[in-house]
């Protein structure tokens, strides 16, 4: 009697117990360092079906439209290996990036596996902020933007030019090749003003880059 009751109980509870994942991933979290010039990266996530039944991958969902996951085929027999390829296109992204790809399978009760992709996109020159603004009527005090070259990668600022003479920009060298300040002081804040500040650098030597900063009286 007790045995029958036990069987009933197990039968009732069985669907609530999560299954054991059959796909074993070699390196589900990957990190890279790149520059904006690389434009993108491909990461490869290999796995093996270590279970006794075929597994079908039913869905791949990336956390960002910039990341496209790809799989050669969907169903993997026991012992078979496969690879999820994730193509991350940088666009105009900078700094630390964290993208994920959620992999769902037909394994009953198994939660989706989350693949992790971290990329540090180095820009040789970091600028903060890239916008200075004043509200109309606000005191027209000078506002600054900090320019910092990455350690070991000197970037010299050759000049700064403002497109609007009513929003003049001044370059202050804190440490040549390493640290600079661009200071903008409006003539006044009585009316709307639009200005672009062109920062001329010597990097890279073959095609020196110009950064464009923004100044406004709103």
């Amino acid at each position: 009697m007790h045995f029958r009751l036990f069987v009933c109980l197990v039968a009732l509870l069985l669907p609530t117990v999560p299954g054991r994942a059959q796909l074993k991933w070699d390196n589900p979290a990957q990190q890279f360092q790149r520059t904006p010039a690389d434009e993108g990266i491909e990461a490869f996530y290999t796995f093996r079906n270590v279970g006794k039944l075929p597994v079908t991958i039913t869905g791949l969902r990336a956390s960002c439209g910039c990341t496209t996951p790809h799989l050669e085929k969907k169903t993997y027999a026991p012992g078979e290996t496969g690879t999820v390829t994730a193509r991350f296109v940088f666009g105009d992204r900078k700094g630390p990036q964290h993208k994920t790809i959620e992999v769902s399978t037909d394994e009953e009760g198994a939660p989706p596996v989350v693949l992790d992709l971290r990329v540090l996109i180095h820009d040789p020159l970091s600028i903060e902020p890239t916008l200075v603004y004043w509200k109309r009527g606000e005191p027209g005090e000078a506002k600054t933007m900090q320019l910092t070259a990455e350690a070991g990668q000197p970037v010299r600022i050759k000049n700064v030019i403002s497109s609007n003479p009513r929003l003049p920009a001044k370059l202050v060298t804190v440490k040549a090749g390493e640290s600079y300040v661009v200071s903008v002081k409006p003539a006044d804040t009585a009316q709307k003003e639009v200005g672009e500040i062109f920062v001329l650098t010597d990097f890279p030597a073959d095609a020196p880059r110009t950064y464009i900063l923004q100044a406004r009286v709103k």
């Binding site: 666009g91 603004y133 639009v194 672009e196």
Partner: peptide, 19 residues
């Protein structure tokens, strides 16, 4: 304003933005 085209979109965004 998205990160795919940040450098292109940021200027018109700032122009339209109401502080």
């Amino acid at each position: 304003l998205n990160e795919d085209e940040w450098d292109t979109l940021v200027k018109p965004f700032i122009d339209e933005w109401d502080s």
